[in-house]
Write a protein that binds this DNA or RNA. Structure first.
Lengths: 122, 122
DNA sequence: ACCTATTTGTCCGTATGTATG
DNA sequence: CCATACATACGGACAAATAGG
């Protein structure tokens, strides 16, 4: 897979890295058992600090997407089926684009929807 | 509409306020021309700082959701059709819940999808 | 089974910017 | 505008897991 980070973007570096893993998994590009590059190696080639990469890996571990252990590295775990979200995400983004809703607002609406226990009719 | 903020939640206060306006608009509870409470008043009743409310209002103005002018207050503007997102958002959240994907990861996937110019087949 | 060198993440602290009130 | 608090990114030292002999 292809790794890139852009320090200029307002998304934090560690989040950019985590995002790329998630989307690669959603796209089927990374599968259970695949190994991510050692943090030091990736940090070196991206020219960011070791800890920045590790922060991303740790976030992914907290999500249950990767198994991260010292001496062994970061491996894609038995994970939630991200691919199942591909279609709903695309549908939402398309709707948001055509309605002229910003990415920030859309993401905020998604978070808010999660916060509501379950969606009963209003 | 009902306003509440919870300092304990990790979402910043100003974001909680903005989110409530967005969801109220999406739900049809607030319509074009409706007036939001004056920032000072809302700040007082929520027991948060004036700047916190103003920050939320400014974000909403930047999104084009409210018209914010001095002396006149904050008014819901001719806005993007947030209601159009209601169904896609609900669908996505349902899919994420049943797939066991966290809110954070879901929101990140949505943002990432925006970043991609347009989704052609892979 | 042992040792140890290497690989790899974890823990400690620090600087700088941004958010908050 | 100011003071405080928090988050991001970085640096160095440390410790567990692994692999080779």
């Amino acid at each position: 897979m292809l790794w890139t980070v852009a320090p200029a973007r307002d998304e934090p570096l560690f989040a950019q890295i985590a995002t790329q893993v998630r989307t690669a998994v959603a796209a089927g590009e990374l599968r259970t058992g695949d190994r991510l590059p050692p943090a030091r190696v990736l940090a070196g080639s991206l020219e960011v600090n070791l800890h920045t990469v590790l922060r991303a890996y740790q976030d992914l571990r907290d999500e249950g997407l990767v198994d991260l252990r010292r001496g062994r590295g970061a491996v894609i775990a038995e994970h939630a089926d991200y691919a199942a979200l591909d279609a709903p995400v695309a549908a939402l983004v398309a709707a948001a684009r055509s309605a002229g809703v910003t990415p920030d607002a859309t993401a905020a609406l998604v978070r808010a929807a999660f916060a509501r226990p379950t969606q009963e009719d209003r």
